[in-house]
Amino acid sequence: MIYRILTSALFAGFAAGLIAAVLQLLFVQPILLHAELFESGTLVYDATAGTPSFVERPAFNIQRDGLSILFSALVYTGYALMLVAAMAFASEQGHTTTPRQGIMWGIAGFITVHFAPAIGLSPELPGFSAADVSPRQVWWFSTVAATGIGLWLLAFGTSWRAWGGAIVLLAAPHFIGAPEPQMFRGNTPPELAGLFATRALGVGLAVWACLGTLAAHFWTTEDRS
C-alpha cells in the first residue's frame, strides 16, 4: 500500500509541479516582475496622469526561476502525497476511485487549497498591504482544513447531518473572516493586482485538474500491476 501511494504521488506530483512551473513562469511571473518594478521604485504609478502599461520584462533568470521550478515541484509533490493518501483512505472506506473521477478530486483539491483561502486572502503581489503573516497563516490552514473536511463530507456523507456539517464547515471560515490589513498602502497599479490574483487562480485550477487526473491514473494503474 505504502509503495503504491508513494509511487503514484511522486509521479503525479512531480509532473503537475513541472506543469505548474511552466504555467506560472508564462502567466504569473511576468506580472510579479512588473509589480516589483513599482515596489522598488524603478517605475512610479501615477493614478491621475497614467503610467505606461507595457515594460520590458527581465529574461529567464536561471537561479531565480530555477528555484521556482524546484519549489513548484516540491509543493505539488506534497499536495500529491496528501491527495493520493485521501484516495487511498476513500478506497479503504469502500469508495473506489476511477481515472475519470480524477478531475473531480483535482477540482476539489483546488477549491480546498486555492479557491477557498483566496476568498479571504487573495493571491498577493509583492509590496501589497496585508495583515501580519502569522494570523494569515492560521486562517489559511484553518480554512484549508475546514474546506477539505467539508468537501469530504459533502462527497461521501450519506445523511443530512453530514451534509449540514459540510455546509457549516465550508461557510464558517468566511463568516469568521480572514485577517485584514489596518491600512491600505502600496504603489502598484490595482490592475496588476487583479490580474495577478485571477491568473494565479486560473493556473491553480489547470494544474489541480492535471494533478487529480494524473494521481487517479497512476493510483489505478498501480492497482492493476
Binding site: Q29, D65, F71, V75, P117, P123
Partner: peptide, 25 residues
C-alpha cells in the same frame, strides 16, 4: 513538504521559494 516549501518563514527558504509562494497563493 507543503509546509516546508510553502509556509516556513526561515529567511533562506522564504527567499528561495518566494515567487512560488506568491504564485500559489
Amino acid at each position: 513538504i507543503m509546509v516546508m516549501a510553502g509556509h516556513l518563514q526561515a529567511a533562506t527558504l522564504h527567499d528561495a521559494a518566494h515567487d512560488t509562494r506568491h504564485a500559489t497563493g
